[in-house]
């Protein structure tokens, strides 16, 4: 018998603290597999966010540093400029990237920093107890919008990927999800491209991953997969939002 799928070398054996059915574990694995496949484990530096993934440095078997809430793109900018031969990526949630760190994210993209950002969007602040995030859907119930998000007082779900796509500095932006094996394999392909872009010095790449948060959504892990399909994807459509490679060829 031959082992064909097992824990990648870039993941430690530590049991993660995520809730049952959380999408973070899948995204961690995809990143670890991509790093193994590209053979860059010894020269990769990750920047962990504040949020549920705050302990990501315990799960990845390569160098990972921690940044203040929302500031991973700024920290990654510093690391990449001092050590340009390393592969530097940030791993951020929607509270971290689209709320507290909006300024850092927008300006890192606008400067066209040669870094990779993996943006995990689950539409809530998970770690603090399921409060409303800027990405929360209209009418979605959270602990701070118990009657559902009302756009009159709380605005609309922010499509940060589309917004960053408008900036001249960004090179590659794609939105994917991990709610089925097929979508998970597609997500891995996007993450791999985002890392390859950095290795080829192309510039700022961001992959937004729509991810499950069954606890904060008040559903079970299996229903959470359908929740993404039925509620999140209509608001946050999947696909390539910007790819300068394709634009150059006239395909996008």
């Amino acid at each position: 018998m031959k082992k064909i799928f097992s824990r990648p070398e870039s993941l430690t054996a530590k049991r993660n603290i995520y809730c049952s059915g959380c999408g973070h574990g899948i995204v961690h694995r995809l990143i670890a597999e991509v790093i193994d496949e590209l053979g860059i484990r010894e020269k990769t530096i990750g920047v962990a966010p504040v949020g549920c993934a705050v302990f990501a440095y315990d799960y990845w078997n390569f160098d990972v540093t921690e940044a203040a809430h929302g500031r991973p793109p700024a920290v990654a900018t510093g690391i990449k400029r001092v050590l340009p031969d390393r592969v530097v990526f940030t791993y951020q949630g929607d509270g971290d990237l689209a709320a507290i760190g909006t300024a850092e994210t927008v300006h890192a993209a606008n400067r066209g920093e040669n870094i990779t950002i993996i943006f995990v969007n689950n539409g809530v602040y998970g770690m603090t107890g399921g409060q409303m995030a800027p990405t929360t859907l209209i009418a979605q119930k959270t602990t701070t919008t118990p009657l559902g998000r009302d756009p009159k007082i709380a605005g609309y779900p922010i499509k940060i990927s589309e917004a960053l796509g408008q900036l001249e500095g960004s090179v590659y932006i794609e939105r994917v999800t991990v709610n089925s094996p097929k979508n998970t394999i597609k997500a891995k392909r996007a993450i791999k491209k985002a890392f390859q872009n950095q290795i080829q010095n192309k510039g700022f790449s961001l992959v937004e991953v729509l991810s499950m948060c069954p606890i904060a959504w008040g559903v079970n892990p299996v229903e959470a997969l359908k929740w993404i399909e039925q509620k999140m994807i209509p608001v946050f459509p999947l696909g390539v939002i910007k790819d300068k490679d394709l634009t150059a060829k006239g395909n996008l």
């Binding site: 018998m1 031959k2 082992k3 064909i4 799928f5 574990g25 899948i26 694995r29």
Partner: peptide
């Protein structure tokens, strides 16, 4: 048949898939 779909979806990477010769 070692398709690995369980491995693809496991959020805890708790599954190892083996294929027979």
């Amino acid at each position: 048949n070692s398709c690995g779909l369980c491995y693809q979806m496991c959020p805890d990477v708790a599954i190892e898939v083996w294929k027979g010769e």
